[in-house]
Design a protein around this nucleic acid. Structure first.
Lengths: 238, 238
DNA sequence: CAGTGGTCTAGACCACCAT
DNA sequence: TGGTGGTCTAGACCACTGC
């Protein structure tokens, strides 16, 4: 408990996040203007501006001079793979996707704990490959609470052309805000080796990702195996 | 070339960075107050404040209410390993260091190109191990332009207790501002296996880091091999 | 207590976008 | 041309630090 109340711009920021979580404005929508929000929250325009600037820094909203402030969306043409840090050594871009499977399973103890579910609660498991220049480079396996992703099937996935996170927004109203990743080097299992076209035991980069929606609620656990022969995981430190 | 000149707060930000690069204020020093800087640059306090806020967001300065704005330093007690993202699975903290060697060599073509030097220009090569609970977890190899690090020897390294980057600040006036890392999974070479106490061919996380000082000038190339059995590389995405 | 950064307000003017 | 966000200013008041 803080001694003094949070500053007004922070309170306003939280109110806007709550409105986003409640779906008052959907990804891609315009928010009300600064002046309108100032009137709504009874604050001066400068204070609302500060709240919006913080939200823009967290990539929750997207500010465009002359046109307005918009809810961020993974469907934006600029960043179809905003959270994927794997880049080709020669800077080549883009992947093609191959769906391996989608089924309803019971959460293992670890998946349940990580996603904040009860053990054995139903989850949807998706497996897929990403190819670069027709060579497999990523084997992804991901788990989603069925409660929030009811109706996600192989057919739905096959029918959707854009990024996975864009599908989650459009069809299930779940927008991914941020993620935490844990990286390790591991040896390829026989199955991973077969799917990625490498030798068994060959080093692969293991990437475990926990993705969060508004309000820091975890909604996706993902395990990726990256073949880093002519690609690498890029990270900027500051 | 931008059509319109950069905004005033950005010009002021760049002037402050230039002053930092010139050593007008050293790491740990206090900058002049907002009001004093406003007078110096002929701008209003609000504009100077914005420039300082941006510098704080980049971790170039550290703002402390009631006492002032200070030049960031790697000697700060809070973050002795600010750029090291390797954390123990059980959240244990801290490493002990073991120096393996420090010698003057000629830059390979790749090292020279990356650091912006001429081929075969002299560089200082340092090799060391980091241990967690008396077990080796990181094998580091790094190269520094001799021009900027003249006098860096085994003795100097042995005599210094704090972080490497703190030594670079205190002794050579080089402050590391940001870095870019490229990660891959690789197989342990015989030498790496021996030093890290693992089997030859075992998967290791390879981390290649290029570190920059003020003005985006590259000054250190580092290759790390991380043993990720009970540690992992942590990354936050947003 | 003096000096510092942190918050909040109010308003002027500009640059950009859509129509 | 009207509405949007972006810049810049000016000043009041508060919270915190260190002497």
């Amino acid at each position: 408990m803080p001694k003094s109340p949070a500053p007004l711009y922070e309170q306003i920021r939280q109110l806007i996040v709550a409105a986003l979580a409640a779906g008052e404005w959907r990804p891609g929508d315009a928010l009300p203007s600064e002046a309108a929000l100032a009137a709504r929250f009874g604050a001066s325009p400068g204070t609302v501006r500060r709240a919006l600037d913080e939200l823009a820094a967290e990539h929750l909203v997207d500010r465009r001079q002359g046109s307005g402030t918009f809810v961020s969306t993974h469907a934006a043409p600029r960043e179809p793979f905003r959270f994927l840090r794997l880049v080709a050594d020669d800077e080549a871009r883009g992947f093609s996707r191959e769906l391996l499977g989608c089924r309803r399973v019971r959460a293992t103890a670890e998946v349940a704990r990580t996603l904040g579910l009860r053990t054995a609660e139903p989850v949807i498991e998706v497996r897929r490959l990403l190819h670069r220049r027709d060579r497999p480079v990523v084997l992804d396996e991901l788990w989603l609470p069925e409660r929030q992703f009811e109706g996600l099937t192989t057919e739905v996935l096959e029918a959707h052309a854009g990024a996975l996170y864009a599908l989650f927004e459009a069809r299930f109203g779940v927008h991914m805000v941020r993620a935490e990743e844990k990286l390790r080097a591991v040896a390829a299992t026989p199955e991973a080796a077969r799917l990625l076209g490498v030798e068994e035991g060959e080093p692969l980069l293991s990437v475990e990702r926990l993705a969060f929606t508004y309000g820091d609620r975890p909604v996706e656990l993902r395990r990726g195996l990256y073949h880093t022969a002519s690609d690498h995981y890029r990270n900027d430190l500051n």
